[in-house]
């Protein structure tokens, strides 16, 4: 997947979000660091272009809600979560780069629950690579990418990685 294909996919997701959410002003795009945050920003840009509306964005870090604490020999840095409050009556769309086992999304839902009780939670992912370990599916998918379990899917974004594209290794 190259830069043009990523742009096209995210623009389509923006259209789908507008279509599925008649009350688009109630939507919060909550990115999972670090690439989910950048993807959420881009989707918000497209929504602004299409509908002339600024929708809220936020950051939801899942590290402290993961279920594998105590099993790793090294820990990554935890980022600060930041959501516009209150969440009551809002639609929070979790945004991530790759949807895989679903465990990160479960942790994100748990984290959102500690900020309040949104009306609904939806899920957008640039890539869905399959191999779910939990009953979770995405509402918006940029591209379905069938992979083998041992393969590694890498999303690279200009603002974070200095290059743009999706690679399977």
């Amino acid at each position: 997947m190259d830069a043009a294909a990523i742009t096209k996919a995210l623009r389509r997701i923006a259209h789908e979000i507008i279509e599925r959410n008649p009350d688009i002003r109630s939507v919060i795009l909550a990115g999972i660091p670090s690439r989910g945050v950048e993807i959420a920003r881009r989707i918000a840009d497209f929504v602004r272009q299409i509908d002339k509306i600024d929708i809220d964005t936020g950051v939801i870090d899942v590290a402290m809600h993961r279920d594998d604490v105590g099993t790793r020999r090294e820990l990554p840095v935890v980022r600060e979560s930041n959501l516009p409050l209150p969440l009551e009556g809002r639609t929070v769309i979790i945004v991530d780069d790759v949807l895989f086992t679903g465990r990160t999304v479960r942790a994100a839902m748990d984290a959102i629950g500690s900020f309040g009780r949104p009306a609904r939670i939806q899920l957008a992912a640039l890539i869905d690579r399959g191999h779910r370990e939990l009953p979770i599916r995405a509402d918006y998918v940029g591209k379905n990418l069938p992979t083998a379990l041992e393969q590694d899917v890498q999303v690279r974004l200009e603002q974070i990685d200095g290059e743009e594209g999706v690679w399977i290794k």
Binding site: H65, G70, V77, S114
Partner: peptide
């Protein structure tokens, strides 16, 4: 610096409606 940055994230937990995370559940 790693500890100080991690503390930024945990300071934010104090501002949440539910000021509790499951990070060390069972410990």
């Amino acid at each position: 610096n790693f500890i100080l940055e991690t503390a930024d994230a945990f300071k934010q937990v104090g501002a949440r409606e539910i000021k509790k995370v499951p990070a060390l559940r069972g410990k």
